[in-house]
Nucleic acid binder design. Structure first.
Lengths: 94, 94
DNA sequence: ATGATATTTAGACATCTGTCTAACTAAGCA
DNA sequence: TGCTTAGTTAGACAGATGTCTAAATATCAT
């Protein structure tokens, strides 16, 4: 049951927001962390969970580590989920 | 942030399986419970979580309580999620 | 009313999860 | 080498979650 990790990963609002940000392109751990009112280690934990679920990938460039969505399908998934279950919104496209 | 309950609800494999079963039509609490290796009160707890998330509705008929998906959108959601993240499967339709 | 069946509610308990601080690794630069 | 910046790892801890047993509620049949 490989998908359980994915659903568990999606269960946290911080992680969903991270994925949403990454939907606009890769971003360094630091840049992502800036957006949240949370210490770096906590953010690191969330990155690890998302990586474990294979929702994101990472690459190091010098001192920075860049994160990006693992596949296009995730982008679609999130867009869709956002539309249907979307935090705040209530629109049902299609 | 109303959608958080939905994602939390979807985070448990037992609850996802319940939703999948209900995708085939309404079913009594007992009939559903039969399918799981779990005590009735535990199942009841899962029903409550799904109901709280507005993913299912219930109606009493005599001694039995029938559960059903709350809306078609859930059926679509689950079918889609099953296809993409599906337990076991790896297919990507569309 | 009594008993049987279907299901939930209450409460206990172990495990999982998200956050923190402190310490560590890795890279760049004086 | 030593200092700084970027990020992770380790470990602690409070609160959430999933399961159980025991007891309660609701309905039906005798």
């Amino acid at each position: 049951m490989a998908s359980n990790r994915i659903f568990k990963a999606l269960a946290d609002p911080t992680r969903r927001e991270i994925l949403r940000l990454l939907g606009r392109g890769e971003m360094s751990a630091g840049r992502i962390a800036e957006r949240f009112d949370m210490k770096k280690p906590s953010m690191s934990h969330h990155f690890a969970v998302l990586k474990e679920a294979e929702l994101i990938i990472s690459r190091r460039e010098g001192q920075q580590i860049f994160y990006a969505l693992d596949a296009t399908v995730v982008q679609e998934a999130l867009t869709w989920l956002w539309d249907v279950f979307g935090d705040g919104k209530k629109g049902r496209t299609q």
